[in-house]
């Protein structure tokens, strides 16, 4: 035998899962929502998505190659996921330079400053999004009205999101029953015919992506189900107390990026807890904070902030919420 035999500690066989496969699985799961978005927002959705992915991958490449001088690992798809999610969180008529700034913040500040993949405490796409939301509130909240496939890019007609309409309406003293006539119906909300960020509108497509990721075992049910359930529960309580001032739970769940956040943003591996128990605590926190911001805060929606706030608690949750150890409860027969 000419070659040397290999020695290594056990195990000697490995599963077929890899970081790249997981990331591309997430991208695949996001495709239906993207298609819906293109269907309603036309060219703008395509341009914003491509720009966002392009900038994110480019910045990751530049930072890894020239600043950190580490191995360039853009091929694992994580920068693409960040780019796609960033695009999903901005309006489809956002100017290219704002997207570029968002991508730079998401990758540069949100991810690379902490050491790259696996080390960032906060969801990079959301860091980028929230930065843009605070820096460019006008551009970030002038959402195009769904106009069909041939809608242009920056010249789209803009309008408010359903949640924005409700918030503004309540401020000016209108009641929910009046306002409900002004927002799209539930069917429209479900298929995504409303104003909003690029990827947050298509409830049906997002749920499809969720089922795909469950099937491929990319994520578990814990975070999305608990988070949506918490939001439905709290808004439901408020709705039962005063249906005139509070929208019903179904409306809350279908609008304002709850599903996008629950399925794709909160479940980000790096920034979510490690144990099922921890995941449930984390997503209850996100749900509660979202409802608080929406109902009592001045922002019409709060999913991004809620996720970022709970991201900050993840190390603490990981530290104290432990899986049940085998043999912990001694049962004597």
């Amino acid at each position: 035998m000419s070659k040397l035999i290999t020695i290594s500690p056990s195990p000697h066989v490995f599963g077929s899962q890899s970081v790249g496969r997981l990331m591309y699985g997430v991208i695949l799961a996001l495709v239906p929502a993207l298609l819906v978005s293109v269907f309603f927002y036309g060219m703008g959705a395509i341009i914003v998505t491509l720009l966002s992915i392009g900038f994110c991958v480019l910045f990751e490449f530049l930072i890894q190659k020239f600043i950190l001088k580490t191995e360039v690992r853009i091929s694992d798809g994580s920068a693409m996921v960040t780019g796609l999610l960033l695009a999903f969180n901005v309006p489809s008529n956002l100017p290219w330079w704002i997207i570029m700034i968002g991508a730079l913040i998401a990758i540069g500040v949100g991810k690379m400053t902490f050491g790259g993949l696996g080390n960032n405490p906060f969801n990079p796409a959301l860091v980028g999004r929230v930065f843009l939301l605070i820096s460019f509130p006008v551009q970030m909240t002038s959402y195009p009205v769904p106009g069909g496939l041939n809608t242009g890019y920056v010249d789209a007609v803009t309008g408010a999101t359903p949640l924005g309409i409700i918030k503004e309406g309540l401020k000016s003293g209108l009641s929910i029953s009046d306002l409900m006539k002004e927002v799209p119906g539930y069917l429209d909300l479900f298929i995504g015919k409303m104003g909003g960020s690029l990827g947050e509108i298509a409830a049906a497509a997002l749920i499809l992506g969720f089922l795909f990721m469950l099937f491929r075992k990319i994520i578990t049910w814990h975070i999305p189900v608990t988070m949506v359930g918490t939001i439905a529960l709290f808004t439901g309580i408020l709705w039962l107390i005063n249906p005139d001032k509070n929208a019903d739970p179904l409306f809350h769940v279908l609008t304002g990026g709850v599903l996008l956040g629950a399925i794709f943003m909160a479940t980000d591996y790096v920034t979510s807890p490690m144990t099922p128990k921890g995941m449930i605590i984390y997503s209850i926190g996100i749900g509660a904070i979202t409802v608080i911001i929406r109902v009592f805060g001045s922002y019409p929606e709060g999913v991004s902030f809620a996720i970022l706030i709970m991201n900050g608690f993840v190390p603490l949750i990981n530290r104290y919420i432990k899986p049940k150890r085998f043999g912990e409860e001694v049962k004597h027969g």
């Binding site: 040397l4 290999t6 020695i7 500690p9």
Partner: peptide
């Protein structure tokens, strides 16, 4: 060399086995 070590890159780990 008589073998090729392919485990984690740590003398302590290799020498344990």
């Amino acid at each position: 060399k008589t073998n090729q070590y392919d485990g984690a890159s740590s003398c302590a780990i290799e020498s344990a086995l």
